[in-house]
Computed example of a mutant assay.
Amino acid sequence: MLVGYVRVSKADGSQTTDLQRDALSAAGIDDAQLYEDRASGKKDDRPQLIACLKALRSGDTLVVWKLDRLGRDLRHLVNIVHDLTDRGVGLKVLTGQGAAIDTTTASGKLVFGIFAALAEFERELISERTKAGLESARARGRNGGRPYKMTPAKVRLAMASMGQPGTNVGALCQELDISRQTLYRHVSPTGELRDAGRDVMSAIKR
């Protein structure tokens, strides 16, 4: 069975899916088997894409108008197609970049294999750059990793404020420019240090 997926970036009605729907209909896809999202391709919350991927069964083929209608980026696309392939589901792209991809054919699988190799190459480059950056930072006496959102000063203020019964937690979080989750990860509701808070305070002693 052929299943189609269409997407436009804006949900305000300024963009339509008519062109995509017409192309998919010409490819033999029934309207009942079309899934449509109105959201940016970079967003994770595309409910119709999720529903479409769940509905596909072994022997089905997912058809999209262009490759960029499906994946957020190359790695996301590769992951989707690998998952479909493992489930015995094909992918066919009708036009644009990637129009030669049809994983139900030998030549289409070859084209997608090149995409997959490029994605793997990109991952390796990112990993190498990250390692090189960390080694360079260590050579200069700096430890790698994401900087703390909380600082010792913020932790001390959070401890003092949370120890007061009338503290407005929302206002405190806004003042510290942190989320409630971050606050409670570092300080208890009674103002006592938690493990994350101890890590921040101990960092200044190193």
Rank of each mutant, 00 (worst) to 15 (best):
L2W: 09
V89I: 12
T104Q: 15
R57I: 03
D18N: 11
V93E: 02
L19R: 15
V111I: 12
L62C: 04
R7A: 02
L74I: 14
V8F: 04
T105N: 05
A23Y: 08
S107Q: 13
I50A: 15
I50L: 13
E36V: 14
A26I: 06
D73V: 06
D86N: 08
S9P: 01
T104S: 15
L91M: 05
S25Q: 14
H76C: 07
L91F: 04
G71C: 06
K43W: 05
D22V: 14
H76I: 07
V64I: 13
V93G: 01
K66D: 04
G71P: 03
I29V: 15
W65R: 07
K10D: 09
N79A: 13
G90V: 01
R72P: 02
K54P: 00
T85D: 11
A32F: 06
K10A: 11
L49M: 14
E36D: 10
D45L: 10
G88A: 00
R46W: 05
D31L: 08
M1N: 11
A26R: 15
T16R: 10
T61H: 03
L49R: 05
Q33D: 13
T16Q: 09
R87D: 10
Y35I: 04
L62W: 00
R21P: 06
L34K: 01
A106M: 10
D73C: 10
K43M: 13
T17E: 07
D73N: 15
V78P: 00
Q48D: 13
R87I: 03
L49G: 02
D73W: 09
K109Q: 14
R72C: 04
K66N: 02
A55P: 01
L91D: 00
Y35Q: 04
T105Y: 09
G71Q: 10
A27Y: 09
R69T: 04
D31Q: 14
K92E: 13
T103W: 02
G71F: 05
G4A: 15
Y35L: 04
S9E: 06
S9H: 09
L24S: 04
H82D: 15
A27P: 02
D30W: 05
D68P: 02
D30F: 06
L24H: 01
L94N: 00
Y35S: 02
K92N: 13
S9F: 08
D30G: 10
T105C: 06
L70W: 01
T16V: 11
V64T: 05
L110N: 09
K43Y: 07
A106E: 13
